[in-house]
């Protein structure tokens, strides 16, 4: 709604209201009404100062994360679920993987490249949405670092995400045919795929489980 559009609306409301104020002997109810409508109109004005995003609902089909993963070709096929990509040059012959995940082991998927480009690529995939709204951008992904032949994965703290959506009223939606929101949540991932040169030796400590996806192909 544009600000200019407010003017005709304000006139429509203000005229009978003015009539009301001038002509009718005022009682508590009149004041109540006048104040109530006044507050409503003020809130219409105030609504223009709200910084907000318009909910963008992507109805394009999203890849199924695990289906892609288990096909072993998530990288080869390229996926719209890729959230982050890091690349580290490799100096030695060997890489150790450790993570901050406490006692439980975290899974890291390993794929060997066909060519040796002296680089280790760490890709994060995930699918996060609330009510069909893509919220992946707001997710804090695990921090990955390669130093002294050790790949350290630091998982983020407990993450809380809250989304509030102001919907159009059903009396509007019935005719504009806008998609209705539902209360679906999707929390898939994030998973880490580490692509390494064909003959790099890789091992993990007790915090991490390495899963090779090469044999799934």
């Amino acid at each position: 709604m544009t600000f200019a559009a407010l003017i005709p609306m304000a006139v429509i409301v203000a005229l009978p209201l003015l009539f009301f104020i001038v002509r009718v002997k005022k009682k508590v109810t009149h004041w109540l009404l006048v104040v109530y409508i006044g507050v409503l109109l003020l809130s219409v004005v105030a609504a223009f100062f709200i910084k907000s995003d318009e909910p963008e609902i992507t109805d394009r089909p999203r890849d199924d994360l695990y289906e892609m993963l288990y096909s072993g070709e998530i990288y080869a096929k390229g996926s719209n679920l890729l959230l982050k990509e890091d690349s580290f040059p490799i100096e030695g012959e060997k890489v150790r993987v450790t993570s901050s995940y406490g006692d439980e082991s975290s899974s890291v998927y390993i794929e060997r490249k066909t060519e040796d480009d002296q680089k280790m690529d760490v890709l994060a995939y995930g699918s996060f949405s609330i009510a069909k709204l893509d919220v992946a951008e707001e997710i804090v992904l695990p921090a990955v670092q390669l130093k002294d032949e050790t790949l350290t994965i630091v998982y983020p703290e407990y993450q809380k995400l809250k989304t509030s959506i102001v919907m159009n009223e059903f009396t509007i939606e019935q005719f504009t045919g806008n998609k209705k929101y539902n209360s679906e949540f999707q929390i898939d991932g994030p998973i880490l795929l580490v692509r390494i040169p064909p003959d790099l030796e890789i091992e993990a400590d007790s915090t991490t489980e390495l899963i090779s996806i090469d044999e799934w192909k």
Binding site: F128, K160, L161, K162, T163, S164, I165, S183
Partner: peptide, 9 residues
Amino acid sequence: GYHFELKFY
């Protein structure tokens, strides 16, 4: 470690 909340207005 994820908690999502949704509220409709």
